Amino acid sequence: MSANLPRLALIGFGEAGSTFARAGQWGGSARAFDIKAERGAIMQQCGITACTSAEQALRDAVLVLSLVTADSALPVARDYAPFLTPGTIWCDMNSVSPDTKRKAAASVEEMGGRYVDVAVMAPVDPKALAVPLLIAGKAAQEAMGHLNRLGFANTPIVGEEVGRASAIKMIRSVMVKGLEALSWECAQAARAAGVLDEVTASLDASEKHEPWAERFAYNRERMETHGLRRAAEMEESAKTLLDLGIEPVMTRGTVVLQRRAAKG
């Protein structure tokens, strides 16, 4: 499968890198580097060239997939950009803020590379190359072409502005990760009180399936109209959780936002 593929470098070879490489079967077209040397064995198992330095991995690469930890995304762009061949496309697929991506873009472009903001919008396992990727940047169209040749199948372009793809992902995560945390806090308290079945049944009965735009508008109106009363109620909910030995982290935040919305 490697005959018509771009020369690829993977920087970082954790779950995402190894999942993509196994699914892609990129063979000799791909090189990889990870600061954890033991991951070289996994690279070899995936059929790609394991490099002992970032410089070696990036040499003559046409496309780079940066797949490191969030706190490493900017330092890696700054430190490794001097190793890029002019014109190389750097796809930053890390979950970081738009501002972090703009700073990384400046470092890459200063060294002659072309930076593309890529947001990975779902867990890579089990979707692998079918995972949705949002792409933004001046080189987005060319990056999409390379990614498609590598086997990535869901790659919409969302604009030319670096940070736009990241903004969609980060703001969406406020809801997705927030609901995860809120449901955890609710379930912990319900178990501690011995009322989990009753609470879940009540939630099921009141579940609605309106589009999110309608939910946003409805929730905002409720908070602006009844925020003070709801904040007072949630303060009592926070006390209930404390009495059960559950720290009301999300509930305290709800108190603050309900009260703020009412004052606004």
Rank of each mutant, 00 (worst) to 15 (best):
P126T: 05
E38T: 04
D92M: 04
S237M: 14
T240P: 04
A128F: 10
A213Y: 15
G24D: 04
E235I: 10
R39H: 05
E160D: 15
R191D: 07
R39A: 02
R220N: 13
V116Y: 00
E109K: 07
A201E: 12
W26V: 00
V158F: 02
L133T: 06
G12I: 04
G264N: 15
A165K: 03
R59Q: 13
A104K: 00
H226Q: 09
R191Y: 07
R229M: 11
T100R: 00
R215G: 09
F152M: 10
M234T: 10
R164I: 13
V120H: 02
G112C: 06
R252V: 06
R164T: 15
V118H: 08
P82D: 02
A128M: 07
P156Q: 12
L58E: 06
G14Y: 14
V256W: 09
V174W: 11
S95V: 04
L228M: 08
R22H: 06
I11V: 13
V68Y: 03
L196M: 08
G159D: 13
R102N: 04
A217I: 01
E233Y: 11
R78M: 15
R149E: 09
D197T: 09
A81C: 03
A205F: 03
I157C: 14
M93I: 03
A213T: 13
A192T: 00
I11T: 04
E235C: 12
E247A: 15
D60A: 10
P98N: 13
M93H: 06
G178M: 08
D99L: 12
V158A: 11
N154H: 05
T100S: 07
A104G: 12
V68N: 03
L134A: 13
P6K: 01
S53L: 08
E221A: 15
M111F: 02
Q141R: 11
M1L: 14
V118P: 06
V174T: 10
G12T: 01
E142F: 05
I48D: 10
E207F: 13
D34W: 10
A122K: 00
P75C: 07
M223L: 11
A262Q: 15
L242N: 14
L134S: 03
F216D: 15
C91N: 08
L228S: 12
M93S: 12
S237I: 14
F152S: 12
V158R: 02
A32H: 01
A41F: 08
Q44T: 15
L228I: 06
M43P: 02
C46S: 12
A187T: 10
I48P: 02
R164H: 08
A54D: 06
V199A: 05
Q141E: 15
A193R: 07
L241H: 03
S166F: 08
T88P: 10
M250I: 13
T251W: 10
A165D: 13
K169W: 10
A70K: 06
L228R: 09
S53D: 09
E110I: 00
V199K: 01
A193E: 14
A232P: 03
T225S: 14
L10I: 08
